[in-house]
Design a protein around this nucleic acid. Structure first.
Length: 627
RNA sequence: GCCGACGUAGCUCAAUCGGCAGAGCACAUGUUUUGUAAACAUGGGGUUAUGGGUUCAACUCCCAUCGUCGGCUCCA
């Protein structure tokens, strides 16, 4: 799965994060690639490339520069690193170029002519070679098999700059509003996304129709950053990272742990209701098991280093599947009558993610997966898939997730996929059939499968627009045979079960990160670490506050009493900043009436209510799991 | 891991050209007893990430390491 920023022109595009509903709808309806905005961004990228080439005459090598969600980028190979100052200069020069109202002229050329034009541009030459051979577009991206014919090679020229480009562009540079674009940052990016190829410098920019749109966008980005789970996690006191513990190893506070506990209990309760059973398989496994399952060869580098004890080598568990299959085997002979057998586990796994890949709670080195392995017969695949799908949808619905999409991840033409065409075809067909039967909207991604089979992944985005895999359902017809697990069929013969891997929230840590951002830290009542804050107005009301708190605790609420010698206003402010759902203010009137004055974190004042009335109201809200 | 930026009190951030390391919040103590988003006063708090180097003098310049951030790559 990609971490974002990699949206290619050929992929469906999303507006980066921010729940930018208006733009999202516009784009979905209008088809981004045909929109004016797309042309503006594409053209702005060309103008930027011209400015960069002028800055390094004869030395700048240009690669590719497509529009992306909310903007564009262009990759360069330059004699030195770009600085923020350079960006300002480039931007200034771009405004001069734009003012020239240069026409974007399209011209179709032969491959030889293209090579002559770009004789000093090795990256362009490589792209031209690719275009000539066919099968890839002018960004070097593989085309869908259906459109394998050779694309026409075309140039777009404006002012002094010519680029290998399919277009489309605006008519002339005057269509680019000089007050509506901005260069954002420089980042490294491998040529053709291959870590063995040279690293280029990528300049990201954003461009809009009007200055007002640009302002709105920049404002939304700023607002979104305030919802960043790393920031909120600290502010709300949910989790911390410490140099003394190590990178990617979060520490959870009492409040953070309550959240984890509630999230896991909820999934546990739900999957029990759906017929899943829970197992426990610990934290360490002999390395040999991973050699047999195939994980060792594929993921050796992202496992923590081995622990060697005389003649046995152990590994911290990076995944559960081999353990669950081993448990299945140790439990004795299995009959087809027992299937499907569903083993779920909340297991903390350890993965040695590369340092640069770590990111808050969304990418950690210790993750708690709500994992499950379903042992079933081939003809149970579809119904098991459907069951898992319903479970996942129920859970995502409870968390009020709407902004996610489903990716059908298939085997690509190359990669580390296990060879067995017949089984791949069968599994892929079963997945597709189940998705269609349940009318799930999904998109297909070639080459994104697991090494052992195809999968359906549920992807959500964080506030910065980065996409993260949460739920997943994967069909595996490779590992059961490798680990030699069987069941006895109706025919009395041994058969190899199909294994379906399934995660609901994915990992507790990542899911927590995503929901912190989704709720902006204002969790629905059922999830809020502190549900009620008692606010006695003066010291003499503290006893009544404690009395009410005790009653609420007895009803199962998570409640605290703010007994500090602060003014009521200060207590309200602090509870508000902690996004506590209910503030119960109690003074003389409430104490006399056995009431509480209810204030919501929205600022709404529900005034005094009898305690019983508040309890009934809060319980109903709790029950509904809704905000 | 790769490219780039950054690292000052628990948090958010100052510190001119290399010249005595500061503010607000938080915390502690005292006063205040409060009616729906911040009472007042006083006080403690720092090997400026770590280790080297240059210099009369380093938060500031140089090198290395660690970490964080933005991308890229990878993700069972």
């Amino acid at each position: 799965m990609k971490l974002g920023g990699t949206a290619r022109a050929s992929r469906p595009m999303w507006v980066r994060g921010f729940c930018f509903e208006r733009s999202k709808e516009t784009i979905m309806e209008e088809k981004y690639e045909e929109s004016e905005l797309y042309k503006i961004r594409h053209s702005t990228a060309h103008v930027m490339a011209q400015a960069v080439m002028e800055m390094f005459p004869g030395e700048a090598k240009i690669a590719i520069g497509p529009p992306i969600a909310d903007g564009f980028y262009y990759d360069f190979d330059l004699p030195r690193s770009l600085t923020p100052d350079d960006l300002e200069k480039i931007e200034a020069r771009m405004r001069e170029i734009v003012a020239g109202a240069h026409r974007f002229a399209r011209r179709e050329v032969s491959a030889d002519e293209a090579r002559a034009q770009f004789k000093d541009q090795p990256y362009k030459i490589e792209l031209i070679d690719g275009l000539e051979k066919g099968g890839v577009d002018e960004y070097g991206t593989a085309q869908a098999p259906a459109i394998k014919e050779k694309p026409v090679i075309s140039f777009y020229t404006h002012d002094t700059f010519t680029d290998l480009c399919r277009g489309p562009h605006v008519e002339d540079t005057s269509r680019i509003n000089p007050a509506a674009f901005k260069l954002l940052n420089v980042a490294g990016a491998y040529w053709r996304g291959d870590e063995n190829k040279p690293m280029l410098q990528r300049i990201y920019g954003t461009a809009w129709r009007s200055a007002a749109e640009l302002e709105e966008y920049l404002h939304l980005v700023e607002e979104a950053r305030k919802r960043d789970h790393r920031k909120l996690g600290k502010e709300l006191g949910l989790f911390f990272f410490s140099d003394d513990i190590g990178p990617g190893l979060p520490l959870f506070t009492p409040k953070g742990e309550i959240l984890r506990y509630l999230m896991e209990s909820y999934v546990r309760e739900t999957q029990t209701r759906y017929g899943y059973q829970h197992v426990w398989t610990g934290h360490m496994v002999k390395e040999d098991l991973y050699k047999r399952s195939g994980h060792y060869d594929n993921y050796k580098d992202s496992m923590f280093p081995p622990m060697v004890d005389e003649d046995i080598t152990f590994r911290l568990k990076p995944m559960n599947c081999p353990s669950h299959m081993t448990l299945y085997r140790e439990m004795g002979a299995h009959s087809y009558r027992e299937l499907p057998l569903r083993f779920a586990e909340f297991a903390t796994l350890y993965r040695y993610e590369k340092r640069g890949e770590l990111s808050g709670l969304t990418r950690v080195r210790a993750l708690t997966q709500d994992d499950c392995h379903i042992f079933c017969t081939p003809d149970q695949i579809e119904s098991e898939f459907t069951l898992a799908l319903n479970l996942i949808r129920e859970v995502l619905d409870t968390y009020e997730f709407k902004d996610y999409r489903v990716r059908l991840s298939l085997r690509g033409s190359e990669g580390k996929f296990v060879q067995d065409d017949e089984k791949w075809d069968k599994a892929t067909a079963a997945l597709k059939a189940a998705l269609d039967a349940n009318s799930v909207d999904y998109f297909v991604a070639e080459g994104e499968a697991a090494f052992y089979g195809p999968k359906a992944d549920f992807l959500a985005r964080d506030v910065l627009g980065r996409e993260w895999q949460l739920s997943t359902i994967q069909v595996d017809f490779i590992q059961p045979a490798r680990l030699g697990i069987e069941y006895t069929g109706e025919d009395g013969q041994p058969h190899t079960p199909v294994l379906i891997h399934r995660a609901v929230t994915g990992s507790t840590e990542r899911f927590m990160g995503v929901i912190i951002e989704q709720f902006a830290g204002a969790f629905p009542l059922w999830l809020a670490p502190v549900q009620v804050m008692m606010i006695p107005i003066a010291d003499r009301h503290a006893a009544y506050g404690r009395e009410v708190a005790a009653k609420l605790k007895a009803e199962g609420f998570r409640v605290e009493v703010d007994e500090r010698s602060e003014r009521m206003q200060a207590k309200i402010r602090d509870a508000q900043l902690q996004k506590i759902p209910y503030m119960l203010v109690v003074g003389d009137k409430e104490a006399a009436a056995g009431a509480v004055s209810v204030r919501l974190r929205s600022g709404e004042d529900l005034k005094s209510k009898p305690l019983g009335e508040f309890v009934a109201m809060a319980k109903a809200e709790l029950e509904s799991k809704r905000a």
